[in-house]
Amino acid sequence: MPTADGNELDDLLRRCARQDASALQALYAHAAPLLLAVLVRMLGTRAAAEDALQDAFIRIWQQAGQFDRIKGRAMAWMVAIARNRAIDLQRARRPTVLLDAAELAAAEQLRVEGPAENVEFDAAHAALRRCLELLGGAQRQCLLLAYQRGLTQERIALAIGQPLGTVKSWVRRGLQSLRACMES
């Protein structure tokens, strides 16, 4: 990921709010490859992810005026828009996502590499990784399948062959522990 300054992205969003299409193009150049990576992982196919990417940028354009200008949150805001689009699309289609054993194992692994030479990101990522590693394997797997693959708790239960109630309690305890760890 190119390491554009957060303020620069905030500024581009402000220009989008004033209907400056060149600012959206600059945001696209910076953020589209990352958002597409998120969407491919959530939607499973390149074609669906590309369509969702297009929808996400149209929303970014239309909703830029509502962007809450908390300094440096532009990327978090855009990722949320893309994720929400993917979640809507997933909920609208039939549950066809079946994960194989390798994918399930991968959900327990944490990617360690981040954007090169981005100290701020490295610190945030290291903290999250450390806290996720402190969770039990099953809790971590549930949280990652939900966040990265966009699976509902019902689909997670199907995918890992556990009762829904068990998955729900793993998710709840996992989130509690994660918050406690990241706030400490």
Binding site: A37, R83, R111, G114
Partner: peptide, 18 residues
């Protein structure tokens, strides 16, 4: 929560759109 989990998104390998 968006900020806490954001590194999981940012750590993915970028995919260049068509």
């Amino acid at each position: 929560w968006e900020d806490r989990l954001l590194p999981l998104s940012l750590a993915l390998a970028p995919v260049t759109p068509d």
